[in-house]
Design a protein around this nucleic acid. Structure first.
Length: 881
DNA sequence: GAACTCACG
DNA sequence: ACGTACGTGAGTTCA
């Protein structure tokens, strides 16, 4: 007879363990319907481990049926005083049961009995029938079930760490038999089950007594032999308790169960159901671990490969098509084309011959303003097509942009992943199809073309659903009139690029290289040894161990050598100042000279990519190169800007920036009259704040130092202030910081109200939004974890401010590009740096821009306070005043 | 690939 | 009591 192996799991116990093991991340584990999934996840982890370890032929998960059991009938207080099971856990039980069904494991519960008793009963039967049984639980009591054929695995340290008990191991560690566990517990009691045992008897005394007397009964028969007067008194006094507790502790091994062992065959995973379940739970890890060919699950898809000869067959009397352009990499400015796909009605047309797009039959569709195009990533598609001399017109639906607006957390750039986020599974991610890293390659035609065709299907299938969701969120306007037009604006800015004078960078490079090696020598001399200054580890050892400098701050892995630390040491230790200089210069050299040079294209320009669907607040970000963090704060670094020059002779760089846009947004959305008045009166806002919080009579009494402090408080307010944070960042004491904040809120009471309201809104709605309904979901706002919860609260305060400012400049950009065109200007908008727009323009247009740009920018969106714009220009980006 | 550091708004 | 400023990208080191 084949070996029979039974896996018995105490469902309640493991689910609880899993839940509390992941309690700090409970808000991270939610699916897209807001169901908490942490315990389900942890449970499944444990299940995987135990299935692998025991390779069972039979399996069962037992659950408690309800609150009342034969034990509560025996003793009212049984399990009383336990904390109420949190709602976040209760909702997970039914899904655990669903999971088990998909994994081919039966579940069972029995009125009046606990899971323990079901397990005790079945394991006894299993023992009698020659099963090898493994019991899994988080409860040590179950070790009483150990026998020749039954081991008990207790999960500890979360759910993945497991200790395996068999009879020998119990004897070895406890010195008693598994059956005596009951006696041991009877005397010592169990606080979590709320029975006290014998007064004054704990783990150790109880163990000693049971070792000597073997059982509770024998102990009481031979009480005279107990040494210790007090102990004897307690035993006599609590005799009844001890016998009751023994009954409570004993796991029932003859419960009236109505299932047969033979019916507990472990069936194994039902792949289809399990995939569905994992998807519903958003369990990406388990999905990726599955030995499951996703493509097998997909319907086969038809397509037609286009050639020069069959283009004639394309129906083109449609008013709507779906289009996808394949590019082999992220950088659509320069990476190779893979192919394209076009969907007209239900027909998918595909090709790897990118040049076909240039033929009128296709080009005309893409350029036709009367044919709506559905795409994934308008900007990428526009720039790619532009390289082929094609101008994309009239995008109706952009899956990437829509998805980002609906939830900034789902900001993958991968069409397949985005589709999956919206419950569309007839497609894989690019990584799954192309492979990753060194293994990445474009697959054979059929696989590629099917993948392309599925992309078309995904875009088309999700169009209405996502547009409906945008509509429900009042985001249609944001989508149609802001993000979508902006994609075109950004595309043109990226394509235009900005000219970088490589010679200037090269000159700086040689000078810097020289200076850096001089500083290096100084540092080596003082340290008395050569080492890698760029290595925080080595630098820390030199400064804090070899040279014994005071340690002011540590990181997770060692000494902190960050600027704020080094700056405190610099005045006393020359080597520290040299390290700071070294750091500053090598940063400039590596990031802004060597790094930037690598991004210069053949046209002597850099063509950044603005990531339109990345940030959580609605800002843009900029990559390859990042043109939003070119140095300005130090003279040394600022010189880098000398290399950014106009692309034509006798042109200028022109720049306009919003003044205090975030504070103005705050004044507007908080409706704080005091702050609004100051902006309306065009006061120096930081001086006014200083006057208020320092109780001065007039703004003219404000010293530069007080203004500086007030400015820091204003910044802090925008970031969702705390006294600790403000103190840390400004060097004032925490007490002072606290007072400043209190005074601030007293002076600007509606700012305080706004902060309270917005956190409340986040708690109630699960998200916050900007003036234009850009959303940010904050699931952690209700977290039990202080850190996570307060981070979410600060984010709730900051995101509508930062995000509304982003909304405003985005409107300005759309209007600005149109204004340039309408005014027939040659000037080009080149860059956006969050609150600043940078142009290049012929000399004779500067006067026009000086009026036009501020006008467009300050009227982008009407707030309850005016927007203020300042402009500068010069012959390069450095030299603008 | 994570950790650290530092550039910007 | 808890322990942190908001949003980014990129270069270097090191396990």
């Amino acid at each position: 007879m084949a070996e029979k192996r039974l896996l018995l799991i105490d469902g309640n116990s493991i689910v609880y363990k899993a839940f509390y093991a992941l309690i700090n991340q409970v808000e991270r584990f939610t699916n897209n319907k807001g169901v908490h999934t942490s315990a389900i996840y942890g449970f499944n982890n444990m299940l995987d481990i135990m299935l692998k370890k025991t390779n069972p032929t039979h399996a069962l998960v037992a659950f408690d049926a309800g609150k009342t059991t034969f034990r509560t009938n025996m003793y009212d207080g049984y399990k009383a005083g336990r904390h109420k099971t949190p709602e976040e856990l209760i909702e997970q039980f039914k899904y655990v049961k669903e999971l088990l069904k998909a994994r081919g494991i039966k579940t069972y519960e029995l009125d009046n009995y606990e899971a323990d008793d079901i397990i005790g009963t079945i394991s006894k039967e299993a023992d009698n029938n020659g099963f090898q049984t493994t019991v899994v639980t988080g409860d040590n009591d179950l070790t009483q079930l150990c026998s020749e054929k039954t081991t008990v695995s207790i999960s500890n340290r979360g759910v993945s760490g497991v200790t395996h008990y068999d009879t020998d191991y119990v004897k070895e560690t406890m010195g008693i038999t598994p059956q005596q566990i009951i006696d041991w517990k009877a005397l010592k009691g169990d606080s979590s089950d709320n029975y006290p045992g014998v007064k004054g008897v704990g783990d150790k005394t109880s163990l000693k007594l049971i070792k000597k007397f073997n059982s509770v009964e024998n102990l009481y028969d031979n009480l005279d032999e107990v040494s210790g007067k007090k102990l004897k008194e307690h035993l006599i006094e609590d005799k009844q308790e001890a016998f009751l507790d023994k009954k409570l502790a004993r796991i029932h091994r003859d419960a009236p169960i109505d299932i047969e062992l033979t019916n507990l065959n472990y069936l194994g995973d039902n792949l289809e159901a399990l995939v569905k379940f994992y998807r519903e739970m958003n369990f990406k890890k388990f999905l990726s671990q599955m030995d499951f060919d996703e493509t097998k699950d997909m319907k086969s898809i038809n397509y037609t490969e286009l050639t020069k000869d069959n283009l004639i067959d394309l129906k083109n009397n449609n008013d709507e098509v779906t289009f996808y352009l394949g590019i082999d990499g992220e950088n659509y400015h320069s990476d190779n084309f893979i192919g394209f796909a076009l969907k007209i009605d239900n027909d998918n047309y595909v090709s790897k011959d990118i040049n076909l797009l240039k033929l009128p039959q296709l080009k005309n569709i893409l350029e036709n303003n009367n044919i709506v195009k559905n795409v994934f990533d308008t900007k990428r598609t526009y720039v790619g097509l532009n390289r082929l001399g094609i101008t994309l017109k009239n995008v109706g639906f952009d899956l990437l942009l829509s998805s980002y607006l609906l939830n900034t957390n789902d900001n993958s750039n991968d069409l397949g992943r985005v589709a999956n986020e919206h419950d569309y599974f007839e497609i894989q991610s690019d990584e799954d199809v192309y492979g990753k890293g060194a293994k990445r390659r474009i697959p054979e035609d059929d696989v590629l073309y099917s993948h392309f065709s599925r992309k078309l299907m995904a875009i088309q299938s999700l169009k209405q659903k996502l547009l409906d969701e945008l509509n429900d969120n009042q985001q249609i306007d944001l989508y149609k009139n802001l993000e979508l037009p902006l994609a075109f604006v950004l595309a043109k800015m990226e394509i235009d690029g900005i000219f970088v004078d490589k010679d200037i960078l090269d000159q700086m490079s040689s000078k810097l290289t020289e200076r850096i090696s001089e500083i290096e020598q100084l540092i080596y001399n003082e340290a008395g040894v050569k080492f890698n200054i760029a290595s925080p580890k080595q630098l820390g050892e030199i400064l804090f161990e070899k040279m014994h400098l005071p340690v002011l701050k540590k990181t997770k892995t060692g000494y902190s050598t960050a600027v704020d630390v080094l700056e405190k040491l610099a005045s006393n230790y020359p080597i520290v100042q040299e390290v700071l200089d070294y750091r500053q210069l090598s940063k400039i050299l590596s990031t802004y000279i060597v790094g930037l040079s690598k991004d210069i294209h053949d046209d002597h320009k850099v063509h950044t990519r603005y990531l339109q669907t990345l940030t959580q607040t609605g800002r843009l970000s900029s990559v390859e190169p990042n043109l939003q963090n070119i140095p300005i704060r130090t003279e040394e670094g600022r010189k880098i800007r000398q290399a950014f020059v106009p692309s034509h002779k006798d042109w200028q760089i022109f720049s306009s920036d919003y003044s205090q846009i975030e504070l103005r947004v705050l004044a507007s959305i908080s409706n704080d009259k005091n702050m609004q008045d100051e902006f309306i009166n065009n006061d120096d806002i930081h001086a006014s704040t200083a006057r208020r919080i320092f109780d001065l009579k007039d703004n003219s009494d404000v010293t530069p130092e007080l203004r500086r402090q007030a400015k820091a408080v204003n910044f802090g307010i925008v970031y969702g202030i705390s006294d600790f944070g403000l103190a840390n960042n400004t060097g004032i004491s925490r007490k002072d910081a606290k007072q400043f904040i209190e005074k601030y809120f007293a002076e600007y009471p509606d700012v305080k109200n706004y902060m309270d309201d917005i956190v409340g809104k986040a708690k109630n709605n699960g998200y916050v939004e900007t003036i234009l309904h850009r959303r940010r979901y904050l699931p952690e706002i209700n977290s039990r974890n202080f850190h996570q919860r307060s981070f979410a609260a600060r984010t709730a305060m900051n995101s509508p401010i930062q995000g509304s400012a982003a909304d405003i400049i985005k409107i300005a950009m759309i209007k600005m590009q149109k204004a340039l065109k309408d005014n027939n200007l040659k000037a080009k908008m080149l860059l956006q740096v969050h609150d600043e727009l940078i142009f290049e323009a012929p000399n004779d247009e500067i006067k026009i821009l000086e009026k036009l740009v501020p006008k467009v920018m300050d009227s982008a969106l009407k707030l309850k306070v005016p927007l203020k714009v300042k402009s500068h220009y010069g012959k390069n980006w450095y030299n603008i005043k």
